[in-house]
Simulated assay, not measured.
Amino acid sequence: MSDFRESIDIDRRPEDVWAYITEFTHVPEWQESATATERLDPGPVGVGSRLRITRHIGRRDIPMTMELTEFEPPRVWGMQGIDGPVRPHVHGEITPLDDGRRSRVTLEVGFEGKGIGKALVPLVVRPQMRKELPRNEQHLKDRLEHPVA
């Protein structure tokens, strides 16, 4: 179940959007709470691949291990948190527009709290995400439409 769903249109081909989004070192460039990422598995990315994303939530930096649950280039990806007090569930879709010249990116995000996370999710995480998700999509659009050299 997702708590939030946001879409944005981007003036780039779906393949370009896919390449940027699934190169996970880019996550801190377009997601405000992400401070670092680290691939945990060697080899090609696919279902079952894991990465650690460190996020600034409230006053703390919290590392989360995420596992890819969906991976259908260049259209669909999904991830689920598998440890830590806050476990996000993410589903993303890239829809071609204008005969593949543009893209619509839709992100759905939900959260499960474990231990202290049961209090963090409603009090800190959801309010933060409510503000952040639309801004993250705008950052993604800006990065892809106006790349920094």
Rank of each mutant, 00 (worst) to 15 (best):
G84D: 09
L97Y: 06
T54M: 06
E72H: 11
H91L: 14
V90R: 09
P88Q: 14
I62P: 02
R87M: 11
D99N: 12
V90N: 13
P88W: 10
G78N: 07
V86G: 02
H56V: 08
I57H: 04
H56Y: 04
R59M: 15
V86F: 05
E93D: 13
F71V: 09
P63A: 01
I94F: 01
E67I: 11
D83E: 10
M79H: 03
P73V: 02
L97I: 12
I62S: 07
G58N: 03
G100A: 00
P74K: 01
R87S: 12
R55H: 13
R102K: 15
T54L: 05
H56I: 09
S103Y: 06
H89D: 15
I57S: 10
R59K: 15
I82D: 04
T65R: 01
T65G: 09
D61L: 14
M64V: 15
P73Y: 07
P73L: 07
H89E: 09
F71I: 06
I53L: 15
E70G: 00
R102G: 06
M66F: 05
E72D: 14
V86D: 09
P85G: 13
G58E: 01
M64F: 02
R55P: 06
Q80H: 15
S103T: 11
H91P: 12
G84N: 12
G58L: 10
R75Q: 13
M66H: 10
P73F: 00
P73E: 09
P73N: 02
P88E: 05
P85A: 14
I62D: 03
D83P: 02
R75C: 07
L68I: 12
I94W: 11
E72A: 14
E67D: 04
R55W: 07
R101H: 13
R101W: 03
G81D: 01
G92N: 11
P63G: 04
P96R: 12
E70P: 04
V86L: 04
D98H: 11
M64W: 08
P88V: 06
